Computed example of a mutant assay.
Amino acid sequence: MRSWGQQPDGPADGRYAVQLTDVTKRYGDGPSAVLALDKVGAGIAPGTFTAVMGPSGSGKSTFLHCAAGLDRPTLGVVRLGAQDLSALKERRLTELRRTHIGFVFQAFNLLPSLTVEQNITLPLRLAGRQVDEGWFDHIVKAVDLGDRLARFPAQLSGGQQQRVAIARALVTRPEVIFADEPTGALDPETARDILGLLRQAVTDLHQTVVMVTHDPVAAAHTDQALFLSAGHLVDALAEPSADRVADVMAGLRRAA
C-alpha cells in the first residue's frame, strides 16, 4: 500500500526529495512513554510545496523534525534524496543539514549582532563555503531585501525578518526547505506575502518546501496537504483549498 503524499507511480526519476518509511518516534520508556509518530509513511516529490497539518499534539512538529534530520526516529527510515539519514553519524548529519537543508522558523532565529547580509550567508560560512554572488543577488532580489543588507534584525519588521530567514534558507541551494509555522507570528497581510515567497521558491527557484501549519489559508498556497492525528498520517489533499482543509481539520478535531 502506498504511503500518503506519494503519487501512485512516484516521481519520474523514482526518487523523492523526502521519504519517510514506517517512521515511529517514541519519547521516554515504560507506561509514561509518548508515541508521537506511529509507523508513518510519506513521500514528497521534488519541486513541490507540502503542508503538514493536524490538531495540537498530532505529531506534525515531530514529523518535521524527523524529516529534517533534527531528531532521529525510534524506528523506520528517513531519506533525503538517496541518503538514509539514520545511517549517518551525528557530525555528518550536521554537515548535511548545513548544506542540503534549509530551515524557516516562526521565531525567525536571526542573530541580532549580525547584519542582514551576514545572517543570510551564515550557513555558508559555517560550512566553509564561498558565497555564489550571482545566486546571492538573485535570492536577495526575490525577497526584496537589496536596500536592507547593512541593517540589523532589530531595525526590521517581523515580515522583513522572515524574508531574511527565507533568504538564509535558500542561500545554500538546499534540496529541501522545512518551515515550521513560518507565518504564525505575522499579521495576515504580511503572512500572505511570506507564503507568496515560499510559493515563488517552489515555482520559480524549483525548491521543495515542507511547511508545518495550522492555518487553512496557508495550506491553500501548497500543492498538497498531509494530515496527522494522534501520530498517524490519516488523510491527504491534492491542490487543497482553504475550505476543504478547514473541513478536514474540523473532522479531525471532532474525532479527537
Rank of each mutant, 00 (worst) to 15 (best):
V176N: 00
T172A: 09
R192M: 15
Q106P: 00
G76V: 01
I194F: 06
L149R: 08
L233E: 06
F178V: 03
V77I: 06
H206P: 15
L233H: 11
I166L: 06
G146L: 10
R26E: 07
T74C: 11
P188M: 14
A36E: 02
V140G: 00
P123K: 06
L156N: 09
G158I: 01
R15F: 05
H65R: 15
R129F: 08
R199P: 12
G28H: 11
A33S: 05
A220G: 15
R168D: 01
T50C: 13
P123T: 06
H221T: 11
D243A: 12
A185G: 05
G81M: 09
G134V: 08
G28D: 07
L237M: 07
A12V: 04
A255D: 13
N109M: 03
V164M: 09
T222I: 05
D38S: 05
K141A: 14
K141S: 12
E90D: 11
L156W: 02
V164E: 01
R192G: 15
M1T: 10
H232V: 11
K25Q: 15
E239F: 13
A218L: 10
T222Y: 15
R2G: 03
L233Q: 12
G10E: 04
T99F: 01
A191P: 05
V34Y: 11
G54N: 06
A12W: 00
F103T: 03
D193C: 12
Q6K: 11
V23Y: 00
S3A: 04
D13T: 07
L197S: 06
R79V: 07
Q130R: 14
Q130L: 13
A201C: 11
P46N: 07
F178A: 08
K39S: 13
G146K: 06
F227R: 02
G10L: 02
R79Q: 12
D132G: 13
V212T: 06
R254S: 05
T99C: 13
F152G: 03
F152I: 00
F136W: 14
Y16C: 04
V78C: 03
Q155T: 12
G134A: 06
F136M: 15
A68Y: 02
R129C: 08
A236F: 14
A167G: 07
P8F: 08
T99G: 12
F49Q: 00
I194W: 02
S229I: 03
L75R: 11
G134N: 10
L149Q: 03
V217W: 03
R244S: 14
L35E: 08
P11T: 09
A33W: 10
V248Y: 01
Q106L: 03
G57F: 06
Q106M: 00
K25V: 13
P46H: 09
L88Q: 04
L80R: 01
E175T: 12
R244E: 12
R254A: 04
L114N: 00
G69Q: 01
K25P: 02
T121Y: 01
L75M: 09
L237C: 07
G184L: 04
K89Y: 03
T50P: 15
M249E: 00
T190W: 09
V209I: 14
D147T: 14
A179G: 02
F152C: 02
P55H: 05
P240I: 03
R15I: 15
F152H: 13
L88N: 07
A238I: 14
D84C: 11
L75E: 11
V210S: 05
H214G: 04
N109A: 15
A242E: 11
D84T: 05
